[in-house]
């Protein structure tokens, strides 16, 4: 189990690193300096957000437009934060750090059978993602075109496959988790393209309403 956890972190780190490289390329093309790109990856630490805002920036958009493009993609941290926040440290300086480490990988890796997010797993993923993302960005801006577009190699399929694999134990155990995931998936497919960017993932959170449905066996189990 420990080995499996280490391998999972390795997969997370490597995939994020490769996307960091392609972000590094993009940032240089868009006119950011190497130092700016690397610092951005450290202090923003959000792949989709950075791709969106820097793409707009590079296309000559105003600062307002470019940052709004990023904000749209950051909206996913509202529901992800709602899922994980109660499991994080409540102590002030430490909470700032732990909230900054909020990643989709951390939520999926930490999500447990009781519906909470395991803090250590969340933080392990957060630190791994930060390291991979920052190093990848540095390699992309200063390493030259060594790797190229990761989508050429199918690396983009690693992310959903990893998420499904990590969610599988909870999906097997809990039919309501299966429904939540299925509704979330359907919401994105149904709203993508006509809802503004970033909102389909937020809409997916309505899948959580399955929690209101009473478990069919709850009454029998809790009866004395």
């Amino acid at each position: 189990m420990r080995g499996e956890f280490a391998r999972t972190l390795a997969v997370i780190g490597i995939t994020v690193l490769l996307f960091g490289v392609s972000f590094g390329f993009l940032a240089r093309d868009a006119g950011l300096s190497g130092v700016q790109a690397v610092i951005m990856s450290l202090v923003v630490m959000a792949g989709a957000t950075q791709f969106a805002s820097v793409t707009a920036f590079g296309a000559g958009a105003s600062l307002l437009t470019a940052s709004m493009a990023g904000l749209a993609l950051s909206l996913r941290y509202l529901p992800l934060g709602a899922a994980a926040g109660r499991s994080l440290s409540a102590h002030f300086p430490r909470r700032l750090f732990e909230v900054h480490l909020l990643t989709d990988q951390g939520v999926v890796l930490g999500y447990g059978p009781d519906g909470t997010v395991n803090r250590l797993r969340y933080l392990s993923a957060g630190v791994t993602v930060t390291a991979g993302w920052v190093l990848g960005t540095a390699a992309g801006v200063w390493g030259g075109a060594l790797i190229g577009d990761p989508t050429t190699y199918g690396i983009d399929a690693a992310y959903p496959a990893l998420f499904l694999a990590l969610l599988a134990p909870q999906l097997r155990r809990d039919p309501r988790a299966r429904w939540a995931g299925l509704i979330g998936l359907t919401m994105v497919l149904a709203t993508y393209g006509w809802l503004p960017r970033g909102l389909p993932v937020v809409a997916a959170a309505v899948g959580a309403l399955v929690g209101l449905r009473r478990h069919d066996t709850t009454n029998e189990e809790s009866a004395p």
Binding site: D104, V107, R178, V188, A204, A205
Partner: peptide
């Protein structure tokens, strides 16, 4: 159930 919903998305 927010986590599986959003992750499904």
């Amino acid at each position: 159930y927010v986590a599986p919903a959003v992750l499904g998305g």
